[in-house]
Amino acid sequence: MTDVTQRSPAPGLGRRIRRVFSDRPVIPLLILLAILMVVLEILRPGIVNERWIANTVKFAIPLAILAACQTVTMLTGGIDLSVGTVATLGAFVVSTQGMDAGLGWALLLSLAPALLIGIANGIGVGIFRVHPLIMTLGTSLIGVGFLQVYQRTVIATGTKVPDVLAWIGTGLTGGIPNSLIVFVPVAAFILFMLGRSGFGRLLYAVGDNERAARLSGVIYWKVILALYILSGILAWIAGLIYVGLIKAPSLSLVEPRVLPAVAAAVIGGTSIFGGRGGYLGTIVGAVILTVLATLLTVLQMPEGARQMLFGLIVLAVTAAYIRITADS
């Protein structure tokens, strides 16, 4: 900070705040989160307690993992809309095969569709250069079709959520959600990958200027293929946590959370055009959206008004964010 003041002798307070915000985009988000929690506490005194926080974290974690898929793909200028289907497929297979095939086998089996869809996305986007939006929508449609067919064949056997997943999804140990066991390594991995690894730098490079990246020897299709497979695996993990959390595998288990996941990544400061952003902001974004959902529920508005407010707030936050971080 002293550094900054030395370079420009008398910067206005506004400018200085701007600079801090654009250097550390997570700060304004944390402030927003704090404001939301204060508002919540005022509206319903006493609601912000340990149990509430644990509950919020529990719901924010799978959303944050889904949003991780969007963050990493958006860094290259892409998007992955097939995550809802991948996650649901994973959850569904695990809870139908878990009974007689054994958990390990069921997990392995449920990973297969995630990998297949990830590979298909990667090939379509990386080699055939199909627009990621279209490619992932297409594979998502195919996945939904398979899911419906599969659901019909297993309808007689019924479903059961494996106990381990239920424990991870809903359990608390000493007031701390068990799903952190999964989330902390996943988040650490993504943060490390984006910030410290060569692969992360390749993602930023491809998203920032694909031509330049190619000319400096990046093999585009390999990066993209690896990226979408990674995204599929992340979505699979999110699906497993969701099924443990909600405990009722259905065809629409994760689908309604795909667009909020995109919103979480966008609020978190990742540019949808690629090259800018990071995972820390996305995590805060996912928490903000979860708190926001509670807030809108507490206000006891009709469902319609709640959705309208949700949309408007996402838009307002994104617009404000772009203003704050753009020119400096």
């Binding site: 919103a263 949309g311 838009l315």
Partner: peptide, 8 residues
Amino acid sequence: AMLFVWQG
């Protein structure tokens, strides 16, 4: 975002 607004 407007998808949610109009749907609401």
